[in-house]
């Protein structure tokens, strides 16, 4: 945990504050004010990415810190897209997700450029990790969008809308998850000599992928006859993602080839 006393840190904390203000304003019923905060938060997030690019002199996509900044800036366009495409208002959940993304960027990741060990010096680093991070963000959004499916009192067309939106978001997340898995195994072949080593993190990622594969099969088999099952599956998938990011990454029980800390 460290606080960044730099322009970069200031921009990140400004964005975080604006995202938090969005949530508070919307929850308090001040819709227009909340939307204004959300839009301003996007401008701050873009400024933070732009500052990073100007400051380092390279496109800000070369490490996880930079990638998280980009993800936070991508949320406002995503929520606008959801409103245009599915007629859903996802502002509050996207702002919460943005805060979740910016906390590691603001307090955990270092701003200085890390001295990478030889194994991580690869053109596949950012595409591999980036696909996963972007996929995880979209799958988290899909789970949040599926929340109305749990309720019994929701109108039929409202439920359909939520189901379609969550499935469309989930399929893009699934594409990115697949891409991340493939790029990872390609990199594994180039770096470790084999594309699949039964490494604990590989196995958990495969398990996550299979949960979502099961979700799409379930949707094909039974349509929307069991909306709660579909929503539950998206939440189980999210649980797997959270486990992969926390327990598997941090526990010594799963020591493996992905330990580069």
């Amino acid at each position: 945990m460290m606080v960044k006393m730099t322009v970069q840190g200031g921009l990140i904390y400004l964005t975080l504050t604006l995202f938090a203000a969005t949530v508070i304003a919307r929850r308090g019923g001040w819709r227009a004010i909340g939307n204004a905060f959300w839009g301003t938060g996007f401008v701050a997030a873009v400024a933070s990415v732009a500052w990073r690019g100007l400051h380092t002199g390279h496109p800000p996509m070369q490490n996880l810190f930079e990638f998280f900044l980009c993800m936070a800036a991508a949320l406002w366009p995503l929520s606008v897209w959801s409103r245009w495409r599915n007629g859903l208002d996802t502002t509050v959940q996207d702002a919460l997700l943005g805060m979740l993304i910016l906390v590691p960027a603001g307090f955990v990741f270092g701003e200085e450029v890390r001295r990478l060990p030889p194994a991580l010096q690869s053109a596949l680093f950012i595409p591999h990790v980036g696909s996963y991070v972007a996929g995880y963000v979209l799958l988290a959004r899909a789970a949040l969008m599926a929340l109305p499916l749990f309720r019994r009192d929701v109108a039929d067309d409202r439920m359909r809308q939520a189901e379609t939106a969550s499935r469309q978001t989930a399929v893009v997340g699934f594409v990115l998850l697949t891409l991340g898995l493939f790029l990872g195994s390609l990199w594994g072949k180039i770096c470790w000599g084999h594309y699949w080593q039964f490494d604990p993190k590989e196995m958990w990622s495969l398990a996550t992928w299979l949960v979502y594969a099961g979700y799409f099969h379930e949707r094909l088999a039974h349509g929307v006859r069991a909306p709660r099952t579909l929503a539950a599956l998206l939440w189980i998938g999210l649980l797997f993602i959270v486990l992969t990011l926390t327990w598997i990454n941090l526990s010594r029980l799963f020591a493996g080839m992905h330990n580069y800390a």
Binding site: F198, P200, K201, W204, A207, H217, F254, G256
Partner: peptide, 20 residues
């Protein structure tokens, strides 16, 4: 196939415990 996916998923989780 959905059930098979979930069964394989549990299998993958089980294989994560003994180490690579």
């Amino acid at each position: 196939a959905a059930w098979l996916c979930w069964a394989l998923s549990l299998g993958a989780v089980a294989l994560a415990f003994p180490g690579a």
